[in-house]
């Protein structure tokens, strides 16, 4: 899948491959022996965060797990 930053797609794929292996083989099995993808993630983030700024995508200040809205059934 492509990254929102055209220049970041290769870095993203490299990270995704690393992450998917770690997630299936280590994380889900309860193995906490460190994250081997830190460096590839850092490189990928440097690229994608720049793209987000350039494209003015409004991701800043958005709380994790969404805005705490009043959810009512209608």
């Amino acid at each position: 899948m492509n990254s929102v930053g055209e220049a970041c797609t290769d870095l993203k794929r490299e990270y995704d491959t690393c992450f998917n292996r770690w997630f299936a083989d280590k994380f889900l099995k309860g193995d906490r022996s460190g994250d081997p993808c830190t460096e590839t993630f850092r490189k990928y983030q440097r690229c994608v965060q720049k793209a987000i700024q350039e494209k003015d995508i409004p991701v800043d200040g958005v709380d994790f797990m969404g805005p705490d809205k009043d959810k009512t059934e209608t």
Binding site: N2, S3, C8, K12, F19, F27, D35, V48, V59
Partner: peptide, 12 residues
């Protein structure tokens, strides 16, 4: 309909 996909935050 999905054009791009990125992880922009991640932590354990």
């Amino acid at each position: 309909h999905v054009l791009t996909e990125d992880i922009i935050f991640r932590e354990v």
